[in-house]
Simulated assay, not measured.
Amino acid sequence: MTDQATSTIVPVKLGDRSYDILIGGGLIERAGQEIVSRAGKTMRAAIVSDETVAGLHLERLQAGLTAAGIESTPVVVAPGEQSKCFATLETVTNAILAARLERGDIVIAFGGGVIGDLAGFAAGIARRGMGFVQIPTSLLAQVDSSVGGKTGINTAHGKNLVGVFYQPQLVLADTDVLNTLSLREFRAGYAEVAKYGLIDRPDFFAWLEANWRGIFDGGPERTQAIAIACQSKADVVERDEFEMGDRALLNLGHTFGHALETATKYDSSRLVHGEGVSIGMVLAHQFSAKMNLASPDDALRVEKHLRDVGLPVSINEIQGQLPPAEKLMEYIAQDKKVTRGTLTFILTRGIGQSFIAKDVPPSAVLSFLKEKHPA
C-alpha cells in the first residue's frame, strides 16, 4: 500500500491485467483525470448506475469526466439485487451498443455490488470485451465485489451462477460517498471487512473489535480498514485469479449466506448480501465447532462482534417464513462452490484459520441446518 496525494493506492498485480485501487476522498470528482492519466488518451464512457446512486452523485461524476474530455452516457437501472438478471443485462448491453461505444471506450460501474457485477458482466461481453472501471459507492463493493474481476447475475437456480471473470482497469473507492449510506447498508459492508480478519488475519479481526466505532464514525480507521481489506483480497486474487484454489477462501460465510438470499428471493427488505454473509460466517464457525474443528468460544466471539455492530447473526433474525432445511440444502447443493456433487465449505480451525473443506457430508450439514432453522 502506498500513499499518493490524498489517496491510498493498493496495486493488484496480474501481469498485463494489473491495476490500482485508489482509496480516499474526492475521487468521484477526480475520476476523469485519474482515468485519462492511466489510459493516456480520452475516450467515451457508459456509466451504469442505479436510480439511488444516480440521484445523489451522477451529476458530479459526469462533470468530472467532461472536464477530462470524456463524453459519457448514463445507463440507469432499478436499485436492488433483482436488477442482477438477464432482462437488465440485456437492457444495459443494448444501451451500450445504442450509444455506439467501441471496444476502446469504457464501461464505468457506478454503484454498489449489484451494479459492479452487472456492469462488469456487460463490459465483458459487449463487443467481446470493453474497457471497465469500477467506482464502488458502498462499503461492501469497495472492499469486496469491485476487486478481483468476478462479475455476474443471479438466476432462479441461485446467486451469481452466470457470469465471467473480467478485471477492471482501475478501481476508485471514494470514502466520502460512504457518508450517504444508510446504517443498514454500511453494516452490511462491514461484514465483508470482518471476513478478511476471519479468513487469515486474526490480528486484523482483533483490531476491528477494538476500532469498529471509528470505522462507523468515519475516522481515519475507515480508510485504514478499507485499505487492509483491499490488500487482503488483492493478495488472494494475485495467487488465484480464477478461483481454482485459495481464492475460494474469500467465500467464507457465503455458501450459507447465498442459500439464505435465494430462500428470501433476493428481497432486500428481508435480507441484503452482507447480512447473509454475517449470518453465514457465524454458521460456518458454529458448524466448524460442531465438527470438532474449532472451539465453540471462537464461534461465540465472532457472533458477539457482529452482533455488537448491529448485524444479524442467526437465521431466526430473518423476517418472514423460510423454506424448510431440506430446501436450503438444495440451494447449497446448487451453489457454485459445489464440484461434481460434493459439498465444499470454507470452515475454520479458529479466528483467522479458515480453510477449504472438501467432501463435507451433506447429512451433517442438513442436521446442523435443522438445529438452526427457526421451524
Rank of each mutant, 00 (worst) to 15 (best):
residue 254 H to G: 05
residue 260 L to A: 07
residue 188 A to K: 09
residue 209 E to P: 00
residue 286 Q to D: 12
residue 177 V to P: 05
residue 215 I to S: 01
residue 280 G to M: 11
residue 225 A to S: 05
residue 295 S to T: 09
residue 214 G to Q: 06
residue 266 Y to I: 10
residue 228 I to P: 05
residue 258 H to C: 04
residue 283 L to K: 12
residue 246 D to K: 14
residue 195 K to E: 07
residue 221 E to F: 00
residue 274 G to S: 08
residue 174 D to A: 04
residue 237 V to I: 13
residue 245 G to P: 04
residue 230 C to G: 09
residue 262 T to F: 12
residue 284 A to P: 02
residue 200 D to I: 13
residue 276 G to K: 06
residue 240 D to C: 08
residue 225 A to P: 01
residue 172 L to N: 02
residue 230 C to I: 14
residue 218 G to K: 06
residue 262 T to Y: 11
residue 259 A to C: 08
residue 296 P to K: 13
residue 208 L to C: 02
residue 190 Y to N: 00
residue 211 N to Y: 04
residue 182 S to E: 03
residue 278 S to T: 07
residue 172 L to E: 08
residue 279 I to M: 05
residue 170 L to M: 09
residue 291 M to G: 01
residue 193 V to R: 04
residue 282 V to L: 07
residue 223 T to E: 15
residue 238 E to Y: 07
residue 290 K to Y: 09
residue 183 L to R: 15
residue 214 G to Y: 03
residue 199 I to N: 02
residue 176 D to I: 13
residue 272 V to P: 03
residue 265 K to S: 15
residue 280 G to T: 08
residue 280 G to Q: 06
residue 229 A to N: 06
residue 184 R to P: 01
residue 222 R to L: 12
residue 225 A to K: 00
residue 169 Q to I: 12
residue 260 L to K: 01
residue 214 G to F: 00
residue 268 S to I: 15
residue 180 T to P: 14
residue 294 A to T: 12
residue 216 F to T: 02
residue 258 H to W: 08
residue 236 V to T: 12
residue 236 V to K: 05
residue 234 A to E: 05
residue 259 A to D: 05
residue 191 A to G: 05
residue 208 L to N: 00
residue 258 H to V: 11
residue 200 D to S: 14
residue 229 A to F: 06
residue 203 D to N: 08
residue 217 D to Q: 11
residue 173 A to M: 04
residue 221 E to G: 03
residue 197 G to M: 02
residue 228 I to L: 12
residue 271 L to G: 01
residue 251 N to C: 10
residue 193 V to I: 15
residue 286 Q to C: 12
residue 284 A to Q: 09
residue 288 S to G: 11
residue 213 R to W: 01
residue 186 F to R: 00
residue 219 G to T: 07
residue 184 R to W: 11
residue 289 A to I: 11
residue 215 I to L: 07
residue 202 P to I: 03
residue 242 F to R: 15
residue 250 L to W: 11
residue 273 H to R: 06
residue 288 S to M: 10
residue 289 A to P: 02
residue 282 V to N: 04
residue 173 A to N: 12
residue 195 K to A: 06
residue 175 T to I: 14
residue 291 M to K: 14
residue 174 D to H: 10
residue 172 L to D: 07
residue 172 L to W: 09
residue 246 D to V: 15
residue 262 T to L: 12
residue 277 V to E: 10
residue 291 M to R: 14
residue 202 P to H: 04
residue 194 A to V: 14
residue 212 W to Q: 10
residue 211 N to M: 11
residue 223 T to Q: 15
residue 250 L to G: 00
residue 267 D to M: 11
residue 194 A to W: 03
residue 282 V to Q: 07
residue 174 D to R: 04
residue 179 N to G: 14
residue 268 S to L: 15
residue 182 S to V: 10
residue 187 R to P: 02
residue 237 V to N: 02
residue 226 I to D: 05
residue 220 P to E: 09
residue 214 G to N: 05
residue 174 D to E: 05
residue 281 M to P: 00
residue 269 S to M: 13
residue 264 T to C: 09
residue 254 H to I: 08
residue 240 D to P: 00
residue 177 V to K: 04
residue 187 R to E: 00
residue 274 G to N: 02
residue 261 E to A: 01
residue 273 H to F: 10
residue 262 T to C: 13
residue 210 A to D: 11
residue 196 Y to L: 08
residue 286 Q to Y: 01
residue 196 Y to P: 02
residue 250 L to R: 07
residue 261 E to H: 03
residue 222 R to Y: 00
residue 188 A to L: 07
residue 203 D to P: 03
residue 251 N to L: 04
residue 215 I to Y: 01
residue 193 V to T: 13
residue 198 L to C: 02
